[in-house]
Computed example of a mutant assay.
Amino acid sequence: MPFLDLIDGNSMFYKDWGNITGPPVVFSHGWPLNSDNWENQMHFLGNQGYRVIAHDRRGHGRSSQPWTGNDMDTYADDLLQLFVHLNLTDATMVGHSTGGGEVARFLGRHASTDPTLVSKAVLVGAITPVLGAIPSNPSGVPLSVFENDRETIRKQGRAQLFWDLPSGPFFNFDLHPENKSLALIQSWFDQAMQAGLVNVFDCITAFSETDFTEDLKKTDIPVLLIHGGEDKLVPVENTAKKAVKLLKKGSLKVYDGADHGLPNTYAERVNGDLLEFLRS
């Protein structure tokens, strides 16, 4: 399995599939998952001639579980090292949820100063521009929601939280029990339990309190936002509908009645929209 040695001594696991000479598509996963969550999209686009790459963010999946660096700046800097290692240019970046924040920070922190790195981006159910109700975003999700998640980890352990989320609000199985898939819940749980405790704990602050407004304003490449209209975890009104207004070349597709886990629950539709955007 390929691992990249990062400059701070940690290691990053990544997948590099598809056509090695094809246009590169780089995927960033959501919290607390790993690159496995993008396998459907990677398999689809790999068979369309693209080079598809996905990493396990530090602290997640098969990557190192460091005590420090569990923040958006470091996530973006780690990803830049992967770009350099694989000599990636003119890439399309695709991020889901927390991974959408990682992509936005990468665009603002690195791609804005080196336009050869990225030509397009897709944000799926992304936390941009701000998820939580911090002072710059008072209408966001109350920070008490995220503190409750941390308290569940403290008192009951992460396993309980990581079973409750996919069983309920992540895929909206609480709203639509007729759609409930134990296999999908188990897959989500298994990925989540590979992550390190301190890493997922600290990442809650990173995804709920980081403001990506300036990153989006700096971005002048085409960006497609895809969001579930019934996303309970990352409400579309406070995220995607605000984010698209900050982008110079943004467009938004809202899947009516859809949940947060679009790469899984709406895989075929996401795949089709990705391919159409890549070919445009």
Rank of each mutant, 00 (worst) to 15 (best):
N238G: 14
Q186S: 12
L225V: 03
A133Y: 07
Y255R: 05
A206S: 15
K180D: 05
P129H: 10
E230H: 11
E147G: 04
N47C: 03
W38T: 00
P263Y: 00
W163Y: 15
G22A: 06
G140E: 07
L225R: 00
L6A: 04
D8C: 06
E268W: 07
W163I: 13
H29C: 12
A183C: 11
E147M: 06
L197V: 13
A206W: 10
H110L: 05
N34T: 08
R154M: 10
Q160G: 13
T210P: 09
V26D: 04
Q81S: 10
K245A: 13
G196E: 03
P222R: 06
S63Y: 14
F146P: 02
T219M: 03
P169D: 08
D78P: 04
G140A: 07
F171P: 13
I226H: 03
K120R: 10
D16N: 05
H55K: 15
K218Q: 10
V141K: 00
G95L: 01
F201W: 12
V25H: 01
H60Q: 11
V236M: 04
Y255A: 07
T116E: 11
M42L: 09
M42I: 09
H29G: 11
Y266D: 15
L86M: 05
G261N: 06
V141P: 01
V84F: 01
R105S: 10
Q65P: 03
P32L: 07
I221N: 01
L86C: 08
V52M: 05
L86Y: 10
A91W: 08
R154Y: 14
F201E: 06
Q41Y: 00
I204G: 08
N172C: 10
D114I: 02
D215F: 06
G61Q: 08
A243E: 05
P169V: 12
D164M: 11
A91R: 01
T213G: 08
E237G: 13
D78L: 05
P135S: 08
A243Q: 06
R269G: 07
T113C: 11
N37Q: 12
D36R: 15
L86D: 06
V223I: 02
A126L: 03
F83N: 10
D36F: 12
